[in-house]
């Protein structure tokens, strides 16, 4: 993932995008934790709220694939189904990790 290109596509300078992504990662990790709780306790209503939250921000930031996965979780949860949730959650976490890695890379390449 090239954050410089993404920043350009969204009309931000890299520092601005960085700030937004930090916040996105922080919020999304908290929502992800809530999603795990929802699955553990079989509470679809909690899953709807948390997946909806990550999904909206992901779309605004142009993470379409991530958004699509959360769309599936939300859609299933609205039908009271959390069956496919756990696998998808792993995949969501992987996507967020990719963003985290990209941010780290940005740090390492930034001028000291």
């Amino acid at each position: 993932m090239n954050l410089t290109d993404k920043a350009r596509a969204l009309g931000f300078d890299p520092a601005e995008l960085r700030e937004l992504l930090d916040l996105f990662v922080e919020t999304s990790l908290a929502d992800l934790q809530t999603l795990h709780t929802a699955l553990d306790q079989n509470r679809p209503e909690l899953a709807v709220i948390a997946s909806h939250s990550i999904k909206g921000a992901a779309r605004s930031l142009g993470f379409d694939e991530l958004s699509a996965k959360l769309e599936t979780i939300e859609s299933n949860a609205r039908r009271n189904s959390l069956v496919a949730g756990r696998e998808l959650l792993e995949s969501v976490r992987a996507e967020i990790d990719t963003i985290v890695q990209a941010l780290k890379k940005l740090d390492s390449t930034a001028p000291a």
């Binding site: 601005e16 937004l20 996105f24 919020t27 921000a57």
Partner: peptide
């Protein structure tokens, strides 16, 4: 209610 939206709009 989403902090990312608030951050974006504030900036």
């Amino acid at each position: 209610n989403h902090p990312v939206i608030l951050k974006f709009m504030s900036g």
